[in-house]
Design a protein around this nucleic acid. Structure first.
Lengths: 213, 213
DNA sequence: GATGCTATTGGCTTTGCTGCCAATTGAGTA
DNA sequence: TACTCAATTGGCAGCAAAGCCAATAGCATC
């Protein structure tokens, strides 16, 4: 039903159309899964013909990969604003992490968990996607590492190896999110604060030191 | 090339043939991925016609689900022999877990990690598979819980809530295995002993208490 | 207003998987 | 040996996706 009908074709600049396509693909990938990112599905969503998608992305896998990157990059900035981001002021590495652990506990994070599982599995067969997934995984890690390093500088955290700590914290986050499509319900309680608790241990914080006030 | 040719049809008992099919499907699912479990692929592997697969599994998804269950159930018994298993003697909960953490560090565990990711993602679209995945996830959890409880009885472990501990330990195991298709190489070192260390903490053991002698 | 560029259309073919089924044939039984 | 039943064959059609492309039609420029 999205802007159905028309019939009259709307001609846009290549950059704008391309952006639209990637955005639509990212939305579909996030909500319905990356295997639903097909020429037909994206074309329908935009009210254009499938051929147009092929014009911008002759190889569908490249669109899938870009959709994934678009979705996760945006999400990362929402969950963990970079040090350079305008909304971040100095001296709040602690608060940034507190906010992070609150956000990933919310139901809004479920789609992201599903997307990561989706992408990590699909990477087994799709090298182009795989490269993007690896790249994004490392971006997320580096972002955490950066915040940890900042917090160590501010004397909020105590940590010898911010990179290793970041890798471990994210692994636990991913582990706790791994059951989102299956037995998540049966595991709720024991996993509720696991990632936060591990992070507190990694960063030399007292219990609940990363819980939002 | 597997028993190619023939041409002469070989007639087996329904139970035997069915077992062959599931075994072949489990092998394909484990090594190539569950989406490679198709009528054609399995028939080729067994040197029969695709129609025969349909005879035993009119709905392919049911074969996929059974293949998954077959593979993971066998693996569970290999990694964590049940208390009732013949090779387990009394008083070795500790040794069983030590062995477990050694085994999951080996490269042989990679295919299992891939299979779990595969199945957890596919469960998003396939309800029949999903039920089996949930069931197996809980089986793995219960097996660990059982061993923890046994170890607590033997005074090897200290743990108030074996179920919660089992859930958390498996979550970390899954988290550390989540990158097997993507950035596993870049994360090796920090994740090497993460699951074992977390388990030691959960079970009130000293550092390296679960490392194999 | 005419022209040229290119975004966009609306098909095409190939491929692979699913669900289905009538005919055949092998093996155990009378 | 002949019979019977079920395992097995070897096809069928439907569908959805990918990759491809010639023709069409907006928009900018002259």
């Amino acid at each position: 039903m999205t802007s159905r009908g028309a019939g009259k074709q709307v001609r846009k600049s290549a950059a704008e159309r391309r952006g639209e396509i990637v955005a639509a693909a990212a939305r579909v990938g996030l909500q319905e899964g990356l295997e639903c990112v097909t020429r037909q599905r994206i074309a329908d969503g935009l009210g254009v013909q499938p051929g147009l998608i092929h014009h911008y992305f002759p190889v569908v896998e490249e669109l899938v990969a870009e959709a994934f990157t678009s979705a996760t990059a945006a999400e990362l900035d929402g969950l963990l604003p970079s040090t350079a981001a305008p909304e971040r002021v100095g001296g709040d590495a602690l608060r940034t992490l507190q906010r992070f652990f609150t956000l990933i506990s919310g139901a809004e994070f479920d789609d992201i968990s599903k997307l990561w599982i989706n992408a990590r599995h699909l990477s087994r067969y799709r090298p182009v996607l795989r490269d993007q997934v690896v790249s994004q995984e490392l971006r997320w890690c580096h972002r955490i590492e950066q915040i940890i390093a900042e917090g160590v500088g501010e004397r909020s955290f105590r940590c010898d190896d911010p990179w290793a700590a970041a890798v471990r914290i994210l692994a636990v986050v991913d582990g706790a999110g791994a059951y989102i499509n299956t037995s998540a319900d049966q595991r709720m309680a024991p996993l509720a604060d696991l990632a936060r608790r591990i992070a507190e241990a990694e960063l030399g914080l007292p219990a609940d030191g990363l819980r939002s006030p």
